[in-house]
Design a protein around this nucleic acid. Structure first.
Lengths: 171, 171
DNA sequence: AAAGATTGAGTTATCAATCTTC
DNA sequence: GAAGATTGATAACTCAATCTTT
């Protein structure tokens, strides 16, 4: 993780001050928001990686396992995985490669589409995600530093951004 | 950018439903917040990269140029750059390498510390950041999909997360 | 022709190890 | 010994091109 030594001041507030000083005032709130989101994503990701490292997982691979464990059959086409996790098809191939090498998922031909491939979670994969999830919940998701009310506000605001960016919903 | 085809439903709301269904309710709001932050950071980053590509810049390199252009002398030690941008020293070395190869900054020995190196912005670098900034302001920072009030709320909430993570401020 | 998936090239970021200077 | 910076190795992602099947 970068930036071990905390700054004595808030670098984002300082950047906002600079933006205003250069006459870019209309863009300042957006700049501060984008920078804040970027930095918090870094912080969360670092903590998640730290927690998952002992399990031999990255966040991307954990998300695949969690998603598969939620399905009725424990299997999904690779394309569906990329759609739900919002990542490129090549990234899905890569993540499934790693998971398969570790025996956590296995590939199977899609019975309903000869072009497709399914990723199916194995018993070993289910055991691992069952062990990792509580740790992640307690060490990261339950320790965000915000109250339930604040978390709900945050999710609502970010949902507006996602929605307005066309991330989901009907056009 | 991954995920061109928008989903018909909100994948984060769906994940929250699954978390609750598995009895992980106390962690659900945090999970939704972390996932939302991650996704919005992806969205912002994609738009920023699209805007900066015609200028031959990434966001990391743009940030270096912007920070240098704000200083009185147009130069900073590499360590200070990493501190302010919250990235690893190796990332700073890499970014400055690219910027120097493009003639946008040049390295100079730190006169006050024989171990250190300064990155100094060139006239070409100043011209480029002066051209790129207004485009970034108008195409990204002024188009977040949130009102000024909502942006302020978002920045405040994320500031609490950063502060509680020890990202800045006095211990 | 279009969609699912894979491959290889190119980019970026991190980490550990190293070198120089304080 | 500690700090600033660089290097080489590793991992992950994206993109363009390719292959197979529909």
């Amino acid at each position: 993780m970068p930036g071990r030594r905390p700054l004595r001041f808030d670098p984002i507030a300082e950047a906002a001050r600079q933006w205003d000083a250069h006459g870019w005032t209309p863009a300042t709130p957006g700049m501060a928001a984008v920078t804040s989101v970027t930095r918090v994503a870094q912080l969360f990701h670092g903590r998640i990686d730290d927690v998952l490292k002992p399990f031999g997982l990255t966040f991307a691979r954990f998300e695949v396992l969690a998603l598969l464990s939620f399905t009725r059959t424990g299997a999904l086409p690779l394309g569906k995985l990329g759609e739900r996790l919002q990542v490129h098809a090549a990234s899905v191939t890569n993540a499934v490669d790693r998971l398969e090498a570790d025996g956590l998922v296995r590939r199977a031909p899609n019975p309903t589409d000869g072009r497709g491939t399914l990723a199916a979670i194995t018993a070993k994969g289910r055991r691992l995600v069952a062990r990792a999830t509580p740790v992640l919940n307690e060490a990261v998701f339950a320790e965000t530093g915000l109250s339930a009310r604040e978390l709900a506000d945050l999710v609502r605001l970010l949902g507006k951004v996602r929605r307005s960016a066309g991330d989901y919903g009907v056009p």
